[in-house]
Write a protein that binds this DNA or RNA. Sequence first.
DNA 1: GCCCTTTTTTAAAGCGGTTTCAGAAAAGCA
DNA 2: TGCTTTTCTGAAACCGCTTTAAAAAAGGGC
Lengths: 321, 321
Amino acid sequence: MTNIREIARLAGVSTATVSRVINDHPYVNEEKRQKVLEIIRRLDYVPNSSATSLKKGMTRIVGVVSGAYTTSSTPFIQAFNIIAQQHGFHVMLFLTDNDCGKELVALEMLRSKQLDALVCLHRANEWPIIESYTKYGPIVTWQRLVSEHIPSVFMDQYQGYMLGLEHLYARGYRRIMNVYSSKGLNTPQRMRAYDDFSKKYRLDDSGFPDLHGKVSITDGEHIARWWLEQTDKPDAIACSNDDVAAGLLTELKRAGVSIPGEVAIMGFDNNNLARLLDLTTVHYPSDQQAENAFAILLDRLGQQAPPLHTLEFELIERAST
Amino acid sequence: MTNIREIARLAGVSTATVSRVINDHPYVNEEKRQKVLEIIRRLDYVPNSSATSLKKGMTRIVGVVSGAYTTSSTPFIQAFNIIAQQHGFHVMLFLTDNDCGKELVALEMLRSKQLDALVCLHRANEWPIIESYTKYGPIVTWQRLVSEHIPSVFMDQYQGYMLGLEHLYARGYRRIMNVYSSKGLNTPQRMRAYDDFSKKYRLDDSGFPDLHGKVSITDGEHIARWWLEQTDKPDAIACSNDDVAAGLLTELKRAGVSIPGEVAIMGFDNNNLARLLDLTTVHYPSDQQAENAFAILLDRLGQQAPPLHTLEFELIERAST
DNA sequence: GCCCTTTTTTAAAGCGGTTTCAGAAAAGCA
DNA sequence: TGCTTTTCTGAAACCGCTTTAAAAAAGGGC
């Protein structure tokens, strides 16, 4: 096996010097540094990461626990991956299917120091159980949760949703319908935003069905068909996410409906699809959220961490409203 | 820090004995074993996995490289996860977005011994590059590839597809249309199967459009609308996967079409959706494929491996044909 | 009690790195 | 020139675990 001692021997230096070269430490004579680098190249040597981890006391692997790879978690996970990579960390993804056992696997790996930290997007076990693992390493979440041990990069959807509704009002729409996702914790806040909004402007929201559990493109298409059949139609539809809005928009256009002439459509998230279809939507800064999550972990790991972003929803005005 | 020495000291034994207790080795006095276990419990001790990995020369982590989390890779990955877990291995998932750099991250982790082995479902880098990493650890794929260094659990789609077509013929259908996925390597073989099939029974396949790139439920719904408009309709449609078939089936049923009375529909994969909708389909044994992949890796790692399954497609007859 | 086998135990040598510490050499500066 | 400071280097001590080799204890047959 080719190890650091072998490199040292061939380069005629000590292992300490080789280690210094590898880790870019100062105080190494340039000639020796080159010699060492050449031997390393020649022998195709890489440091054994278990040894490094053991000595340094960290693996530079962060676990991300997600119930499944969903539309909402995907951008976060991808952004998290990128920022982690930039800081020399690897990400280990745990798709738990909301199974307690699978989730415990991740927690136990934190305990045995195979992971330095954990991001819990969803959870299967009760919070107290998860909290009991914070003594083994930092854990951060994006769910609404107040605990001094588990910091959260949670965003209050109320504000973001209100932003979209106010925009519709400003554009002159008065018969505004809502489509909710219901899964997750966002719905109650969104409903509250809609209620407050309706009261504020004394809007009439009667006659609209309660649309819950709508999350996919197909769901949007169904809603389009529903809309076509109505006599007393809403003049604007605020969707739970961009996928629903996309399905709704394309299906209505197929039916020859003019948008926003006959009905306005608003999405939520600002994903690629929204950009593609020129859909007005509310930007959900999952990139910055992921960067915040990582920064918090870095900080708790005692490393130099970048400053936190102020997370803010942003209205993206496009052609659909 | 609580380490094995601490446990040994408190239990009044040597670290060797503690290690034996932890690893269930024989020749430990029952009384001492209990004493050690009690101390371990009391101090909430877990062995440091970096140390174990270093000493044992393996991390018991296997990487799975996938371009994205798709309908076809999902069941494989899940099955792989389960079998790996059963053998005390963890799985590190790499979603590469078909980016060479992200893929190299995984390969480099194999090189630095952070991973014991790798499964490449998709690949971004050229095969020779990937092959050059086999000297650092076993790599297995499910793509069609003949290389003595990279074993494959590839299945020839020709046979599976023919199985479905023959079934449709036996049921009396003669105007059989195909829907292809085009992404991936399956399509050419399927087209060949269809050609051979048409020639064998002298079937007329003229007048059908070449449907490629159809992979989603939405795609199936589009095809349904296409079908409704035709005058010279096919009497059976073989779909590239169950999702397409599901979209097609439900959309046609919504339009009042009788299935299989007016048109038969066949899927491919046998996923949950197919079961739910009572869809005739060809079972694709991704579970066994995953188990084979793992068994091959285990074997190459010099561990006792379970015997390989013989992978076979199987026709699942349900109500849609 | 003696000899041989089997069970139990430990000291010590790694696994492959990093880091401290002390010292040597070189450089800077009155 | 002598003295301080900076640069460079390597021996050795770990990090926390497993495993080997050998010693000690126990058991069994005579």
